[in-house]
Design a protein around this nucleic acid. Structure first.
Lengths: 196, 196
DNA sequence: GAGGTTTTATAGTGATGACTACAAAAAAGG
DNA sequence: CCTTTTTTGTAGTCATCACTATAAAACCTC
């Protein structure tokens, strides 16, 4: 049903904006927001700057769409991992291990797009990425707080710290095995922290 | 003895290069290599670009001197912390806690200059910083390997992961208390990992 | 004070960053 | 066919980046 052949007046687009967002996601994930230039983007998308700006408004506009797409397709499915019918510590360990696997899965796009974007030099890109990061940490904190309200803050901070570290190490070329080993060691600490 | 009044021919310098390196260290640490422009540097140092290039050769040249200075004045004193007369796990915990305290000590210069520099967009700055990071991890690995050869690699990777995470969280504005809390949770995992 | 040496300030360089004015091209409706 | 609407490609804009050519200024030795 969602074919692009609607009956709209005007010259038709010669490219698919959704496909362009997917391509841009690969670039931003591989090189980071700052290191992807507009010239590089327009070349990869096979379009000229005016077409780019007509479709996305700005580099930030495209990045915002990339973040949305990442949240749907590439990010960690927190809702599936943080389960109410299993021990909290087990789920948090699963979270860290999922992160390790995801961050090291594709050497072309290592780490987490959101966490790395939160450290961009560009102020707007950093703010946009940080919003997703804050939201994710909020979900984790709420999940822990349900059964361990006293420990929720420090456990969430610890998880966030380890995940940022895993993403950074993935970017330095660490493979899944090494990331998983660190994730599991961190997991041991969680058992201890959440055992009354 | 090291006054700057040597009997050398030529017009005398109107600024102290060592003091300039110290000032630049503050700037690089506060904003990151990429975000400090030459215009900003020359303004902060109260010198013009030609004086800058005569003294340091390039922005990279100054950054190299800043890294050397940081290793001497601001970095974690690994030699003092990793002691042979105390349990390895205790010393590694002390290392993480020292990192937490250092990274959060001054809100103007949060995190670790070396670890953050290793994630710069500029290739040369990244390489120069990474050399220090690799060297530091080598010291840690050798220290652990002396008494726990089998665990040295994964423990060192874990420590490195947590330290990068602590530095990143410091940059996001986390205070010393929160950093210390995460460092201590990580420390629990180390006890477990190094208890035969 | 003349000649040699080094640092200084003025005023640039070329490359690259994100972004845009403009008019031709390609579709629809009348 | 003519008008309207939207996208396209050409060819720029201006700001900022790290860096530099040049010559005057400030010190030394002789």
């Amino acid at each position: 049903m969602t074919t692009k052949k609607d009956r709209t007046p005007g010259r038709p687009r010669r490219f698919d904006p959704d496909q362009a967002v997917a391509t841009a996601q690969g670039l931003f994930h591989a090189k980071g927001y700052d290191s992807v230039s507009l010239a590089e983007l327009t070349e990869a998308l096979r379009i000229k700057p005016p077409s780019f700006y007509a479709a996305f408004g700005s580099k930030h506009g495209l990045y915002a769409r990339v973040l949305d797409r990442y949240a749907e397709t590439g990010a960690i499915p927190l809702g599936d991992i943080l389960r109410d019918d299993r021990p909290v510590a087990d789920c948090l360990k699963a979270l860290l291990e999922d992160a390790a696997r995801r961050y090291g899965a594709d050497p072309k796009t290592p780490g987490c797009l959101v966490l790395e974007g939160s450290r961009a030099n560009d102020t707007d890109a950093r703010a946009a990425s940080s919003a997703f990061q804050v939201a994710a940490e909020g979900v984790i904190r709420a999940y822990v707080a349900e059964r361990f309200p006293e420990a929720a803050d420090r456990v969430t901070n610890f998880i966030g710290t380890v995940m940022v570290g895993l993403s950074a190490k993935a970017r330095r070329g660490h493979d899944v095995d090494r990331l998983l080993a660190s994730a599991r060691i961190a997991g041991h600490a969680l058992s201890q922290e959440l055992s009354r």
